[in-house]
């Protein structure tokens, strides 16, 4: 009797010890940095904060970031839907190779992602004379930033959809097809209701990552203020100029986006568990 009582007492101690370690770790490593951004942003009051947000270069950086993000989300959404449909609804050779290729952008360093676009469109590339003739600038210009953003967020939507569609199988689509439903009809009436939450999360995650991309964009941007500067690059410049309050003020925009991502993720997970 004594032994089992001892054991359950020990178990309780271990339980609360592990919970404390976990809570402390998350509080220090994750929560504190998040709170720090907000505190630092408002350190000199609300007016200074607003001034930093409304600064001409901040507004221009925001616009460029939104432009790159829009391209990335639209292209990766189209790709994500078609790729997930291809991979999960059909059997074909080379599927493994296809999924590996789709995942490459998130496995390479963002700096290397930037490098390969410099090699493709930069001065030493064989396309460069053609680009010059057509007067198109890609490297150190907006198109390069857009391309890099598309690349680094490439698999985010297909990645969320593939596991859900795989678990759902192909029976319902086959039944609908045999009854004569067209492709758009099967997709919107049969498939999409299953993936709507995963799709939403994928789009939001893609948006957040596109807005926050730093390394790859940094390689391809000429760092020209007001021209090729995105929000994260603007944060870097402000921080390196010791303008800490504006740096954190601009960061706070990106932090709010991150928190929205986290909230949507837990909603998606909740619905996923309820449906499954």
């Amino acid at each position: 009797m004594d032994k089992t009582q001892d054991q359950s007492k020990n178990a309780k101690i271990v339980k609360w010890l592990l919970i404390s370690i976990s809570t402390l770790f998350i509080a220090v490593m994750l929560l504190l940095p998040l709170v720090t951004v907000i505190i630092e942003a408002f350190r000199q009051g609300f007016e200074v904060y607003l001034k930093a947000i409304a600064d001409e270069y901040t507004v221009k950086a925001t616009l460029l970031t939104l432009e790159a993000t829009l391209f990335a989300v639209v292209i990766n959404t189209v790709f994500g839907l078609f790729a997930a449909w291809t991979v999960t609804k059909f059997k074909f050779h080379g599927k493994k190779l296809l999924t590996t290729l789709i995942d490459i952008p998130v496995t390479v360093s963002p700096i290397i992602a930037g490098l390969i676009f410099v090699l493709t469109f930069g001065r030493q590339s064989f396309i460069y004379p053609l680009l010059e003739k057509a007067d198109v600038k890609i490297v150190f210009a907006v198109p390069g930033i857009v391309l890099a953003t598309i690349f680094v967020t490439f698999p985010f939507i297909s990645r969320e959809l593939i596991p859900v569609l795989e678990a759902q199988g192909t029976d319902e689509e086959e039944a609908a097809a045999l009854m004569g439903a067209s492709l758009p009809r099967i997709f919107t009436k049969v498939t999409f209701p299953h993936i709507k939450w995963a799709f939403l999360y994928g789009v939001v995650l893609c948006t957040a990552r596109a807005m926050g991309e730093f390394g790859a964009v940094s390689v391809l941007s000429g760092h020209i203020r007001g021209k090729t500067n995105t929000l994260p690059l603007h944060v870097e410049i402000l921080f390196n100029e010791f303008k800490y309050v504006p740096a954190f003020a601009v960061s706070s925009i990106l932090v709010i986006l991150a928190v929205i991502v986290l909230i949507i993720r837990s909603v998606v997970e909740y619905h996923g568990k309820k449906d499954g």
């Binding site: 998350i26 994750l30 929560l31 940095p33 998040l34 951004v37 995650l205 957040a208 990552r209 807005m211 926050g212 991309e213 730093f214 390394g215 929000l231 994260p232 690059l233 944060v235 870097e236 960061s251 990106l254 932090v255 986006l257 991150a258 928190v259 991502v261 986290l262 909230i263 993720r265 837990s266």
Partner: peptide, 13 residues
């Protein structure tokens, strides 16, 4: 939910 923060927060921030 917090576990996912490093995926969502921009690296520069």
């Amino acid at each position: 939910g917090m576990i996912e923060l490093p995926f969502a927060l921009p690296t520069a921030v």
